[in-house]
Amino acid sequence: MPKNFKSNLQNRAVARALALWRKESGLSLDEVTQRVHWSAAKTSTMQNGLVPVLDAEVAALALVYGVDGVRRDPVFWGAQRALDPMTFDLLARGTAHCVGWTYPEVEAEANYVRVVALDILPPLVWTPEYAIALKSAQVEAVSEQGHRHYPEVHRTSAVDQLANGPSLRMDLILSEAVLRRAVGGPLVMADQLFQLASFAQLEGARVFLVPDKRGAFAGPASFAVLSFREPQFDDVVYLDSLHGGTWLESELERRPYLDTFERLLTVALPEAVTTGWIVKAAQHFKDNATV
Rank of each mutant, 00 (worst) to 15 (best):
P2W: 08
D240E: 06
D191V: 08
P211C: 08
K135R: 15
D68K: 04
L134K: 07
E251F: 11
A272P: 05
A268I: 06
E230Y: 05
R180T: 15
D89C: 06
V125R: 03
F223C: 08
P122R: 06
Y112M: 08
D212G: 11
A110T: 03
D240S: 01
R254E: 11
A137K: 11
E152I: 04
T260S: 12
V267A: 10
L264W: 10
E253M: 13
V14S: 04
L162R: 02
K6Y: 15
A82P: 03
A110V: 05
Y150L: 05
N8D: 02
G146K: 14
P231W: 00
V115M: 14
G185V: 05
L63E: 13
R35P: 02
P166Y: 07
V237A: 03
G165C: 15
P186A: 12
A110R: 07
I132F: 02
I173K: 09
Q195V: 11
F208C: 07
F76T: 02
A92L: 14
T274A: 06
D234T: 00
V139K: 03
P128M: 12
A197V: 03
V178N: 00
E109F: 04
P151L: 04
F199K: 00
V267M: 10
T102F: 10
A92P: 08
D287M: 07
A282S: 01
G215C: 05
V159Y: 10
V32S: 08
L27G: 08
G146P: 10
A59T: 05
A79D: 01
P122F: 07
S39W: 13
F228T: 00
Q232M: 11
E271M: 14
P211L: 07
S167G: 10
R114S: 07
P166G: 12
L54D: 14
R72H: 07
R114I: 01
E249M: 02
P74K: 12
A13M: 02
E176G: 02
A62Y: 09
E129S: 13
I278T: 01
M46L: 14
F76K: 09
L258W: 09
E57K: 08
